[in-house]
Structures are given as C-alpha cells and as structure tokens.
C-alpha cells in the first residue's frame, strides 16, 4: 500500500500548510490570485471605458465607487492582499527554482520556451512599479497636486472631476509613454499568465491547451488595446479637449 503522510492519522504536519507550501500548492495560489487580478483588470477597464461616454458618466461612475465607503476599502485591502500573495508565493517559487537549477548550460538553447514565459518576473515587477505610479498619479494624486482641487457639479452635488483629471493627465506625453510601457509589460505578463493559470489549476487537456495559449494572448492584447485607447485618444485625438482645467 502506498503510505503517504495522510492527515487521517492526525499526527503529521498541518495538512493546510503541507498543501500551501508544496510545489503545486504554491503554484495554485499564484494562479488563483492571478485569475482574481485578471478579473480586476477586466472590471477596471470596463469602468475606465466610460470616459468615452462623456464627463458626466465617468464622474458619476467614480462617485458611485467612492460612495461605497467601507466596501470600497474592503475591496482595496482585498486586492492588496491578493497582490501581496501573488508576489510572495512567486518569490518563494523563484527562490526554489534558482536552487533547483543553479548551473545553466554553457551552450544555452531556449528550447521552444516563449519570450513571455521567460520574462514573467521582470514584466511582473515592471507592472508593479507601474501600478504604484498609477496609484500615486490618479488615486493619491501626488504626481500633480492640481488634480486634488478639480471639482465639478453633478446632479446638484459637487463631486471630484475625474474626467478633467484624466484629460489633463494624459495630455502629458511622458505620462502617456509611462502608461503605454506599463500596459505593454502587463500584456507581456498576461500573454503567458492567462493560459498558464488554466494549466496550473488543471482545467486543461491535450486538445484544449494550445487553444488556451492563443486565447490567453488574444485576451491580453485586447486588454492592451482597451486600456491604451484612453491615453492615446486624449493625447492624439483630442478626447475631452476643453474640459481640462
């Protein structure tokens, strides 16, 4: 009989920790947090695209989010926890992988690995830096403090003028460049990440795997196009001209 340290004996190590810090457990956590972050990236894009429906729609959407109050903070803390888990377990995996293969081949060959998969850590860290910049730029608004005093009237209430902030923010070419680069690296990350998480969670088989890879890349590039459409429209096609204060 195969004897494995089964918890039914109730004497071995904690089965939750045993799972969590096993190779596949850590991978599963990275994949599960990854898929939640992909959902967020989707939702965030849908919200952002309201910018094309005019100032009132975007400002009303932003105000609705703010009116969530404690729920908004719960979402923010939850997202932060998911992000920290995603990065922490990736770093654990990375450290072990370094230890498992310390001597690289002198005649190195990439053997069918993709550039996306080989740059996951780099693209992830650049995206992290970009997210921090993005939060400083539009959420905390320390990059340009003038955003703090942008107010507008909406249905008789004075609300923060997100629309004016976005238009002013993206009228600045270097800022747009940072956004395009950050989003491009996010696309790189998701080009491998989206299909990869299905493999890690085991929702796959031989026939479907190559489809996942195509679909993952297609979704990543669709997200890229959706996101960059906003800064590009503002900078080059005069979206919201006259609304910037």
């Amino acid at each position: 009989m195969i004897t494995s340290p089964s918890s039914s004996a109730r004497s071995g190590p904690n089965p939750i920790l045993l799972w969590m810090f096993s190779s596949i457990g850590k991978k599963t956590i990275v994949a599960a947090t990854g898929i939640l972050l992909v959902f967020f990236v989707f939702g965030h894009l849908l919200g952002n695209l309201t910018v094309f429906l005019g100032p009132d729609v975007l400002n009303a959407y932003a105000q609705k989010l703010h009116d969530l109050g404690p729920a908004l903070w719960a979402i923010r803390v939850g997202l932060l926890g998911i992000l920290v888990g995603h990065i922490y377990f990736t770093m654990l995996l990375w450290k072990e992988n370094q230890r498992a293969n310390p001597k690289k081949y002198i005649a190195a060959d990439p053997i069918k690995t993709t550039v996306f998969s080989r740059t996951m850590r780099l693209s992830g860290l650049v995206v992290l830096a970009f997210v921090i910049f993005h939060l400083a730029h539009f959420t905390v608004r320390v990059v340009d403090p003038s955003y703090l005093v942008m107010r507008t009237q909406l249905n008789g209430h004075e609300v923060h003028n997100v629309y004016a902030m976005v238009v002013k923010g993206f009228s600045n070419a270097p800022v747009v460049a940072i956004y395009v680069i950050g989003l491009f690296l996010l696309t790189f990350h998701l080009s491998h990440g989206i299909s990869s998480l299905f493999q890690t969670l085991g929702i796959t088989n031989r026939r479907i795997r190559s489809n996942y890879e195509l679909a993952g890349r297609a979704i990543a590039w669709l997200l890229f196009l959706g996101y960059v459409s906003i800064p590009i429209s503002v900078l080059f096609f005069g979206l919201g001209k006259g609304f910037a204060q």
């Binding site: 009989m1 195969i2 004897t3 494995s4 340290p5 089964s6 045993l18 096993s22 190779s23 596949i24 850590k26 991978k27 995996l93 072990e96 992988n97 230890r99 498992a100 293969n101 069918k112 690995t113 993709t114 998969s117 080989r118 996951m120 491998h192 299909s195 990869s196 493999q199 890690t200």
Partner: peptide, 22 residues
Amino acid sequence: RRVLGMVRQMDEEGFGNCSNYY
C-alpha cells in the same frame, strides 16, 4: 495517496516548480 506521495518526494529531492515553459 500516489499523487501526494510522489509530489512531496519530488519537492524533497530538490526539483524545481513548473512555470509552464513547456
């Protein structure tokens, strides 16, 4: 039991983790 035992032994032996490089 098989999958738990084999994966744990694999970790024990110092093999790395899959990054889906293929």
